[in-house]
Write a protein that binds this DNA or RNA. Structure first.
Ligand code: ZN
Ligand code: ZN
Ligand code: ZN
Ligand code: ZN
Lengths: 166, 166
DNA sequence: TAGCGAGGCGTTATAACATAACATTTTTGT
DNA sequence: ACAAAAATGTTATGTTATAACGCCTCGCTA
């Protein structure tokens, strides 16, 4: 039932980033972990794109306007931290990272990734969890981590494509 | 309801490979596509490991006993073909490839990947498809491709772990 | 306050995974 | 036998991610 705000508007989006950072600060404070300047900056860059973003894109943005270019480990370490804290998800099917829309509650979510515009929705639904759990149980398998990524067309892109075809 | 044979035995396994290759030959013949020597060899190597296998592992095995080492494109092209024909699946969460257990019927399957022994089951269940489809529909999203990879512990490894702990 | 230790980050190098581009060979249809 | 298409060889490079080491900072303790 959840998902990134859509359609995207600049106004929504700025607030969206702000809220995400605010949540993250509180969450880290409560857990006694350090959301350092660098980590917060990376989190901000992840949210700044309203689409999943690659590690090297973050790296490039991080380097913007700095005297010395940042190096890969800088970004990957920050991303590792953010993933551990559940603030960011990695999408393995496209090697990209996206801000978690519900960082407070632990969850195994699914992602709808538009192949046209790359807009991605993080969705959670009990029925998905249940059916996966049931199938795993049938095989005596204990799930610890999930990567559920569905590629396809979002509403907008499907509509546009239809228009283009006419 | 489907899955690789388990527990694994050498005897099962040899037959398993043989069957897979046989199916593949028939399938390619029926479709009028060419299962060349190289492609068949790669498919065999994929099946030879009873676990998902990396492209560069295949490359290494392909090179074994040959005068000149094979190059990456050789393997990737064969894997591309095999994926197009539905004979092999790519597991993006672990960058590995695995033979399809039901190459005849088109399907969107899920994978249970044991983090301990890497044994992987390909499962299909209507309830998973249904719940995913329903959620996607709620968002006006049209699914074209799925990547559903669940990491955890298989029966054997969970049991062994329990024993080790005692 | 000096010394210690853990965590975070900078830096260099390299590993692991994948593809672009073009040359050559093999296959297929005529 | 010939030409076109498909498959493979070959070289180079692109993309994603991590290992290893050293420095610095900060909070703790003697
Ligand atoms: Zn999330
Ligand atoms: Zn779209
Ligand atoms: Zn399959
Ligand atoms: Zn196992």
């Amino acid at each position: 039932m959840t998902g990134q705000p859509s359609p995207y508007t600049p106004h929504n989006h700025k607030r969206c980033i702000h809220d995400a950072l605010h949540k993250a600060r509180i969450l880290c404070r409560d857990r006694g972990v350090r959301l350092t300047v660098l980590r917060e900056k990376v989190l901000e860059l992840v949210w700044q794109s309203h689409c999943p973003v690659g590690a090297y894109e973050i790296l490039a943005e991080l380097t913007q306007g700095e005297s010395k270019p940042a190096q890969p480990p800088t970004v990957y370490r920050a991303l590792d931290f953010l993933q551990e804290q559940g603030l960011v998800h990695r999408l393995s099917s496209i090697n990209a990272y996206i801000g978690c829309s519900r960082p407070n509650t632990p969850h195994h979510s699914s992602f709808l990734i538009c192949t046209q515009c790359r807009t991605t929705f993080e969705i959670e639904h009990p029925s998905i969890d249940q059916s996966l759990k049931a199938c795993a149980d049938d095989h005596g398998f204990t799930i610890t981590d999930t990567s559920i990524e569905l590629a396809g067309l979002c509403t907008n892109c499907r509509t546009n494509r239809r228009i283009n075809k006419l």
